[in-house]
């Protein structure tokens, strides 16, 4: 997948007045593979909605979104599965972890779809993010910051052309942000993948091709 384009997209819930000051809603925008994009907005402007639309998680909008030339409304359930397995990865704001499973099991659940990383690589990532001792802990018993790190590692355990991140560092300290940003940057470079990161205003240590105000 080389690009994601949006054309005149507007969420059902957004009043026209708010949309008129946006650089994305009801405009044309293009995210290319290999580029880094920051989308910043105040709370309630529709950041999570935008990423949800791009990922096919939600469809409460008008306008159209295309992967290359393919309108995403026409994708079948099977095509969505393979896109989510190896084209687009997503760090959800709500994380969507399985709280009954351990940290390692949550990551493995994703990894076993494409066998992208070895068990050792996963352990290395846990170690790098300071979670080595939490490996077999149930996610329900971890802090939100720790859960965020697990969700990010999980998102890296698959091949992708685009990585979507929705306020991924909101509960992390600066040291962890630094470590994880570097890790993400390495993965993006090795995959020549694109990044679309939504935040409330913080920019985080990435070098962006474009910064959008939503």
């Amino acid at each position: 997948m080389e690009s994601i384009r949006i054309h005149h997209v507007l969420p059902y819930f957004l009043p026209d007045a708010e949309a008129s000051v946006s650089e994305i809603w009801r405009r044309d925008a293009c995210f290319r593979k290999g580029e880094r994009h920051l989308v910043s907005a105040t709370s309630g402007a529709g950041k999570s909605s935008l990423l949800g639309y791009l990922f096919g998680e939600r469809s409460d909008y008008t306008g159209d979104i295309r992967y290359d030339d393919r309108e995403i409304g026409s994708l079948t359930a099977t095509e969505w599965s393979s896109i989510r397995q190896c084209r687009i990865s997503f760090v959800f704001q709500g994380l969507r972890l399985f709280t009954d499973l351990t940290a390692f099991e949550n990551i493995d659940l994703k990894n076993r779809l494409s066998h992208h990383k070895t068990g050792e690589e996963i352990l290395y990532l846990l170690n790098l993010t300071g979670l080595a001792d939490k490996r077999d802990e149930k996610v329900a018993r971890l802090s939100f910051g720790q859960q965020q790190r697990i969700a990010i590692i999980r998102a890296l355990c698959q091949p992708f052309d685009f990585l979507l991140m929705d306020e991924p560092f909101s509960h992390l300290d600066d040291a962890n942000v630094e470590i994880i940003s570097r890790l993400v940057e390495q993965e993006l470079s090795s995959k020549q993948a694109g990044l679309i990161l939504c935040s409330l205003g913080a920019e985080y240590p990435f070098t962006y091709h474009h910064k959008w105000k939503l």
Binding site: F55, E57, A77, T78, S81, S82, I83, R84, Q85, C86, F90, F92, R96, F98, L109, K110, L113, Q158
Partner: peptide
């Protein structure tokens, strides 16, 4: 909820 999350991870229905 659990099934929906698995679908988002890329599991086929």
């Amino acid at each position: 909820k659990m099934l929906g999350n698995l679908v988002l991870l890329g599991y086929r229905r």
